[in-house]
């Protein structure tokens, strides 16, 4: 708990900065309103107005907090946790395509890495394409993927998951290639002296050696997956998901809604990455590698 104080200090600093920024950014509108009403605003009135506007340029933290509570906790209390107005529902929608995309991306990433490590042709040819794939702006390719998949009759969760997969397989490929190649020449020679088969070498040496690399990659892949899922909800006219909430918020100038969806997305990412961290600690401990 000795790092609690530094963390709280940083959080407090962020809040101070945020409130101050809200005053500065929302003041013109408050002054404008006051002028039209012919009222003179004192400093405290100005501040309280900038922190309580309906459509502020930058909503104050407590406004975002209240909106999040209204769309999560309060909905749960009313027994409508999964209604279309609930952020829990939208988070769930985004989470399901994130999770599916993450699983697909991890599987694809590991498969490609195994291919690259074991097959010389793939070693020479695949990596440039993998890197090129990440230089294409995801926002440009996302609608294409959805349109193409729709044309062949695939809709719903899978197209969004494909976009998540597209972003998340990359860190897994890079990490796993490095991980599977991490055994030293001596360890590989040792396997040769025992006349071990390639599959024995893979399961008993290369795969266990790659575990620390895998988990690091998975954390990055999970975050990328979430970005992919949200991006996948933006251009498609999706009606559900955090991405759809962001888009709807920006159509109607509902800045508070946008910010609460953003905070929700950040929280979701933090939880998912932390879950991988827990999984990593359990696995490495079981393998005797956590000292």
């Amino acid at each position: 708990m000795r790092n609690l104080l530094p963390i709280l200090t940083v959080v407090a600093a962020i809040f101070v900065f945020w409130y101050a920024a809200a005053v500065v950014l929302n003041a013109p509108w408050a002054k404008d309103k006051a002028q039209r009403a012919g009222v003179e605003l004192g400093f405290s009135e100005l501040v309280s107005d900038t922190w309580s506007q309906d459509k502020p340029k930058l909503p104050a933290p407590h406004q975002v907090g209240a909106e999040i509570w209204k769309t999560t906790g309060a909905m749960v209390a009313k027994g409508r946790a999964f209604s279309k107005r609930s952020l829990i529902y939208h988070s769930w929608v985004t989470f399901s395509s994130t999770a599916l995309g993450f699983l697909l991306g991890t599987a694809l990433g590991i498969a490609l890495a195994v291919g690259i490590v074991y097959n010389r042709t793939m070693d020479m040819s695949v990596m440039p394409w993998v890197i090129a794939s990440q230089t294409i702006p995801i926002l440009a390719i996302a609608p294409m993927i959805i349109v193409v998949l729709n044309a062949v009759g695939i809709s719903g969760l899978l197209p969004k998951a494909m976009i998540s997969m597209y972003l998340s397989f990359f860190p897994v490929v890079v990490g796993m290639v490095k991980g599977l190649r991490s055994p030293s020449g001596m360890q590989l020679d040792q396997m040769r002296t025992w006349h071990a088969s390639s599959s024995q070498e893979f399961w008993r040496l290369r795969l266990p050696s790659s575990m620390p690399y895998l988990f690091t990659s998975l954390k990055i892949a999970m975050a990328a997956s979430l970005v992919g899922a949200i991006v996948g909800e933006l251009p498609t006219g999706a009606v559900a998901g955090l991405g759809a909430r962001l888009l709807a918020g920006s159509y109607y100038g509902q800045t508070i809604q946008i910010w609460s969806a953003l905070i929700m997305a950040a929280t979701l990412a933090a939880i998912l990455v932390a879950l991988i961290g827990v999984l990593q600690r359990i696995t490495l401990k079981k393998m005797g590698m956590a000292q």
Binding site: S184, M186, T193, L205
Partner: peptide, 13 residues
């Protein structure tokens, strides 16, 4: 034959 290398090379896991 059994081969013993310079380093023990035990698997940490």
């Amino acid at each position: 034959y059994g081969y013993v290398f310079q380093a023990a090379g035990l698997y940490p896991w």
